[in-house]
Amino acid sequence: MTDLTAPRASRAPRALARLARYGAPLLVAVALLASSEGLRLATVNQLTSLLLLAVLAMSWNLVSGFGGQFSLGHSIFVGVGGYATAVILDLLGLPLVVVLVLSGVIAALIGVVLAYPMLRLRGPYFAIGTLGLALAVQGWMLNWDFTRASQGYSIPLDQSVDLLTVMRIAVVLALVAVIVSQLIVDLPLGLRLLALRDNEDGALALGVRRLRTLLPTWAISAFLVGVMGAVVALQNGQVTPQSAFSIQYTLDAVIICVIGGLGTLYGPLIGAVAVFVLRQFTADFAGWASLIEAIIVILIVRFAPDGAMGVLSGLSRLVRRALVRRRRLEASSSTESTREGVAA
């Protein structure tokens, strides 16, 4: 057992930890890709949905968790990505990878254009503003001939992609999302981002520029969500404004991050798994499903406001404290010392 309270981690373990942080997701992804042939189609399909949910939550977490800007407008990027993919596949028939990246880029560009004015708003105003924006866009899309309203824009069947390929794309996308989240935390951009969230005045006073930090983050988030929307469109075979621009996507991201832990690296992943499993479970309760989910969300917010990650770190702190205390007791009893620490 290494000393957990050791103040100084030597260079080697830190490098190892970093390697593990980037390597482990890579390994999991490679393992999934390698074994994907052997998976049942049902598993493939469920895994795709789960991974997409996780990507959505991780991307939203970048802006709203790490960046502290509570966005209620992310559904726009799901829709933009979905439509971009459907339309490009329909009209241009470019290679799939190009189409996906292009969809993300379009979403990111639109994201930057929208964020530029929106980021002038703070706190609840930002949430209301982005929500208004999302609804204005959805209202427009519902009334725009181009989107073919409730009939939807179908991905041409000859261009459609089988579920296994969709899952592989989702695996790669999820990997990218995890790595990007890690990178953002490790890079100076992420430092500035976290600094802004923790204490905006302090960060500004230290020379951090708000827009220069938030805008790239927003663009990255929009890119990932755009590609996620594109994969959703591939999975469903069509896009409709009603579903692709649905506020539900944003709400899902909020719920997942709240359950998993807002502004943590792995919270959205854990939250996505929890929500996905919960939904599989409540699917049998039909009309009660959303009731159960909402009550769980309320209970978590009330009693564990830092989500699963908060509970986990709370537990690990308890364990660590117990270990330390035990060691201290052992030490004091072995030396027969009568001096009890004042720190107790």
Partner: peptide, 19 residues
């Protein structure tokens, strides 16, 4: 002192060092 509480000491200093 109002540090960035969720960052480590080093990260706190690194934020400032970006200038």
């Amino acid at each position: 002192p109002k540090p960035f509480r969720q960052l480590t000491v080093r990260q706190n200093v690194e934020v400032a060092a970006q200038v």
